[in-house]
């Protein structure tokens, strides 16, 4: 495992492929985050909202994406993390978390990050600014 400090522009962070999304993931996240919007856990409620099935909490996916930096978390901290939610995640989707260094300003490393589905569709796109300890 290389450290973030040694990355060059356009280098990628080691991607993470998640297990297929299952209902229990979303039930656990609902409990841990206190977000009980039923479109994330109950089929009938999702269908009532015009969806083909339950969808993952955007924040579950965004929370997972932050793990790209976990193995480096003793090198510094996430100073800024911003995303747009650009697609829906359904049960059994296989998500890949990806990040690439796009800029650096002294101790601040700026990464483009995204979450892609099995068909390549991006469901989250954004940026992480990681502040290295001096």
């Amino acid at each position: 495992m290389s450290n973030l400090k040694s990355l060059s522009i356009n280098d990628v962070v080691e991607p993470i492929e998640l297990e297929p999304v299952n209902r229990l993931d979303l039930i656990k996240y609902a409990g841990a985050s206190d977000d009980y919007n039923p479109i994330h856990t109950i089929d009938r409620e999702a269908e009532k909202a015009g969806l083909p099935g339950i969808i993952a909490h955007g924040m579950w996916t965004m929370g997972n994406l932050s793990r790209l930096f976990s193995q480096h978390i003793e090198e510094g901290y996430i100073e800024d993390y911003r995303v747009r939610f650009t697609g829906m995640v359904f049960l059994d989707d296989v998500l890949t978390l990806q990040g690439k260094l796009v800029d650096r300003e002294d101790s601040l490393l700026i990464f483009d990050v995204n979450v892609a589905k099995q068909d390549g569709q991006k469901v989250i796109q954004g940026q992480v600014s990681f502040r290295l300890w001096e």
Binding site: P38, I39, M59, Y77, E79, D80, Y81, R82, F85
Partner: peptide
């Protein structure tokens, strides 16, 4: 309302961990 809202964007900005 507790349902029907769409989460479009989210950011976090920290001054320290």
């Amino acid at each position: 309302p507790s349902v029907g809202l769409i989460h479009g964007e989210q950011s976090f900005h920290y001054h320290r961990p």
